[in-house]
Design a protein around this nucleic acid. Structure first.
Length: 417
DNA sequence: TCTGGGGTCCTAGGACCC
DNA sequence: TCTGGGGTCCTAGGACCC
């Protein structure tokens, strides 16, 4: 059996930890650049605040109901997430951190009653971190996802749902739309709808071979998983990414080239950090730049540039990215967003190369290692390339950001006496 | 019904080559 | 000038996830 533990309204719950005055109150958290609503407390949901809506469109609604608004505070959420994951490891020796707010736990050989165990997990996380979670327990990841949804949606579950027999999961599947199955998105559910597959149950009973012809191979696995056959194994070590992207909207529309070059320098640096963290080298880099698709004369261009040799040297990558962006740039445009993708990667163990091709200088690797060590020890951004600039007027909007309570000495919460 | 954020992976379609 | 087949590379954009 597998458990999926998922934090309830994760970002909103993180904010409430240090604002107990907001417990039981409607709270929303906005995405980067204060773009969309990405987390809503239970109270905000029951006010009918929709998910993933542009902030400016529903700002009046939020003000009308006195909803407390936060910008994304990833330093805080990342730190709280770490604490949650560390606490959860007590409950299983084999786990997979699936996302910032979700973890799969292998409950293979569990002696205790799963229902009790699930409640213990919930109570421990609430007691130690003040993080409310839902727990779904089932024989496959896809069923555990389904169980987790039910744990949160069905009050009788009290936050824990066990699917340990076909009767139980079929009961739930009949009441679940196919679009709510993990891996079934908008397009696929529409296509399935044409085949008269409307519920998770319909999908579970469908013929995998026939469906595969209409869609793709992944559907076969999903069907097996819905029938309690585990096809997706627990990945304790996150597998190396095949591509690494860092893309961001600017805090304001940019007309000049200079601030755009600064921004992409930062994005390239972030991507290169991730590249080194997974011990890969990059052979080609994707760079894009575009204006707002909501404004007239939408302009969007991208290009792929080859590195002279497989590299993880931020300086070299930045140099290529800046040159590429200068070519994509148009004087008459108001740019909204840019991005850097490291798209062709090789393991650094294979970066030795042959006698006749150039390789990355040893000293470059040492320099990057030194930078990474310093930034790990003293915090991200302690050392950065001067080309990022100091003032950074392109930085994202975060008008409602809470303090970094747990990661900055000068922002520690104060307790009134 | 719509998706003003971001990440990863995949695919369609065109250009160009043999 | 048009056509058959097949491959690679590039760009654009979609699908799905959180």
């Amino acid at each position: 059996m597998l458990a999926l533990v998922d934090c309830n309204s994760c970002y909103a719950s993180c904010e409430q930890i240090f604002r107990p005055d907001l417990r039981g109150c409607p709270v929303v958290v906005l995405s980067n650049n204060d773009g969309c609503v990405v987390a809503r407390s239970k109270e905000a949901k029951s006010l009918g605040i929709p998910d993933l809506q542009p902030f400016f469109k529903i700002e009046y609604l939020l003000r009308k109901h006195g909803v407390t608004i936060f910008s994304s505070n990833y330093a805080l959420y990342g730190d709280i997430s770490n604490r949650v994951m560390i606490t959860l490891r007590q409950f299983s020796p084999e786990v997979e951190v699936y996302s910032i707010d979700e973890m799969f736990l292998d409950l293979h050989g569990l002696q205790e009653c799963p229902l009790d165990y699930g409640q213990q997990i919930r109570q421990t996380l609430w007691r130690e971190i003040r993080m409310p979670v839902g727990v779904g327990i089932a024989p496959s990841k896809t069923l555990a996802k389904l169980a987790n949804r039910a744990a949160k949606k069905i009050p009788k579950c009290q936050g824990v749902c066990i699917l340990d027999s076909p009767q139980k999961w079929q009961w739930l599947q009949r009441r679940t739309e196919v679009s709510d199955v993990w891996g079934v998105g908008r397009r696929l559910s529409k296509r399935l709808g044409h085949l008269d597959i409307k519920t998770a149950y319909d999908l579970a009973q469908a013929n995998p071979k026939i469906l595969r012809r209409h869609t793709n191979i992944n559907i076969e696995r999903t069907i097996e998983e819905l029938n309690g056959v585990s096809c997706l194994s627990l990945e304790e070590q996150p597998s190396a990414r095949k591509q690494i992207y860092c893309t961001r909207s600017f805090g304001e529309k940019l007309i000049e080239l200079q601030p755009i070059l600064q921004a992409v320098t930062l994005y390239a640096s972030r991507a290169a950090e991730k590249l080194r963290a997974q011990a890969s080298l990059v052979k080609s880099v994707h760079v894009f730049l575009h204006t707002s698709p909501h404004e007239p004369n939408y302009y969007s261009r991208s290009t792929v540039v080859q590195t002279p040799y497989p590299t993880d040297d931020t300086r070299l990558i930045v140099q290529l990215v800046k040159r590429a962006v200068s070519e994509l740039y148009r004087r008459e445009c108001r740019f909204l967003k840019a991005g850097v993708g490291l798209v062709e990667l090789v393991p650094s163990s294979l970066g030795q190369g042959d006698l006749f091709t150039q390789g990355q200088p040893v000293r470059a690797g040492e320099a990057m290692q030194a930078i990474d060590h310093i930034n790990q020890r003293f915090g991200r951004g302690t050392l950065f390339l001067g080309a990022e600039g100091i003032k950074k007027k392109w930085k994202m909007r975060q008008q409602h950001k809470s303090p970094a309570y747990t990661t900055r000495w000068d922002e520690l919460p104060e307790v009134a006496t």
